[in-house]
Design a protein around this nucleic acid. Structure first.
Lengths: 247, 247
DNA sequence: CGCACTGTTGATCAACGTCAAAACATGTGG
DNA sequence: CCACATGTTTTGACGTTGATCAACAGTGCG
């Protein structure tokens, strides 16, 4: 039982037109949507002006996260073209969304009007559900990555996940829209470890780099397994006391 | 079960009636719901018979997760009384839901009928959205915990989170429905580390234990910060190159 | 009683965070 | 165009955290 993720989203890494005009759940509401542009680092929405819109990212990338009292930053969700955000989740304590790339473009759907429309049109309501399920998918995938043990595994599966999300299929090239610092805060590890993991993969021929952001995936399986360099570890002894979970 | 130990169950945690009869989103559909009972470790739903129901947990607890090819188990979601699950998320690659507690009770809502009803009644559709948002909330909270760095922080905020979820408010007592092994696989750390973290908290007077599962939270703030024992670390130097995220 | 599971504690060692410094990239103003 | 400042990425050295192995205590059960 290996992990072949079947994504529905088809392509559109940074190609605005292919995303903006593609069919999507809230299509009917595009007439009342407002498209906004943001600079690098600019705040798109925060808990301060409490969510007057639903958003859909058209071009660029954005991060959603918090900074803890101790100054550490944590990125909860990474938003790529086609992704929706701005759900009315109550305990959004201190989350903020910031553009990562210059000239990031976002569709803003007035929340009130979306909701009144959903109350009269069951189709729209169902599409809102679909959007929420998409967000659940993203969060689950991220949980699977964060739950991994070693930094190698985290960085490896992050790369695979990004390649899939940005291409819509199983691409072998990916241009990372974010810095190593963002990756680190997204994966809950330090910048240096991210860098070392990447150079490690490169040295072992699992990936190759063109510049610092453009990555070619040579050996996808090795990335997902994120194995250590040399000596095979003897596979942890089976913990028989624990149930199976999935036949 | 005729032990002389007087369980200190504080409130809603395992109290079925207060959950089963409480008002909730799919209330209108309770008439066509079927209540099932499960044994410890029994599978409630898996990807094999692909999701014919929406579920709502009434009593007990359940875990949703996967086992990786290497044998490691990972728990993605912990389901407590009142929680819904069984969303139609496509890339549920190998997830399964298992009861954790003997005689766990679950409401099963036939998916087809829920959806047809949602198509005719916008209220129902809106409630489905609310349910999805609840799941998003849970996943986000878990991401915040997993993203933390030290094991102390993870275990500490896990305890606080559990106390809040099981009581519905800010309780200072919590009876853990799950074993240390489950906690470990839920937090992505080893059993031994979980145990050591708990004994550490106890030794420092931050919590006190009555039995192994019943925990009294003495110093909530210390739990959330999860500070190390003695010497205060000098607070990581501010990384000025990173934007603020949340004013 | 023995057996299976759960929970705790100790010792060892590698992974990773932290500190430090340098190479590299990018932009801004002269 | 260069000089300079600022941010990003990489590499090295070192100390601590936590995974792993191992052994044992507590608990429930047939």
């Amino acid at each position: 039982m290996n992990t072949k993720v079947c994504r529905v989203r088809v392509n559109g890494a940074g190609d605005e037109s292919s995303v903006a005009s593609r069919s999507h759940p809230l299509e009917k509401l595009d007439c009342l949507a407002l498209t906004q542009r943001y600079h690098r680092g600019q705040e798109i929405s925060s808990q301060t002006h409490p969510a007057e819109y639903w958003y859909r990212l058209l071009f660029g990338a954005a991060r959603r996260g918090v900074v803890r009292p101790d100054g550490r930053r944590q990125i909860i969700d990474l938003l790529l073209p086609g992704d929706f955000f701005g759900f009315p989740v109550h305990d959004e304590c201190g989350f903020a969304v910031e553009a990562i790339i210059e000239d990031t473009r976002v569709s803003c759907y007035p929340r009130r009007r979306v909701e009144t429309l959903a109350n009269s049109d069951p189709m729209v309501a169902g599409e809102l559900c679909q959007i929420a399920f998409g967000a659940i998918s993203r969060l689950q995938a991220q949980l699977l990555i964060l739950g991994r043990i070693t930094a190698l595994e985290k960085v490896g599966s992050f790369l695979v996940d990004m390649a899939d999300r940005l291409s819509g299929g199983h691409a072998d090239r990916v241009v990372l829209p974010i810095s190593r610092y963002d990756i680190a805060d997204y994966l809950g590890i330090s910048v240096e470890t991210v860098s070392r993991a990447l150079t490690g993969f490169k040295r072992r021929g699992i990936i190759s780099l063109a510049g610092t952001r453009s990555i070619h995936i040579v050996n996808r399986d090795a990335l997902e397994e994120g194995k250590r360099d040399n000596h095979h570890r003897p596979a942890p002894r089976s913990r028989n006391h624990l149930p199976r979970m999935a036949a």
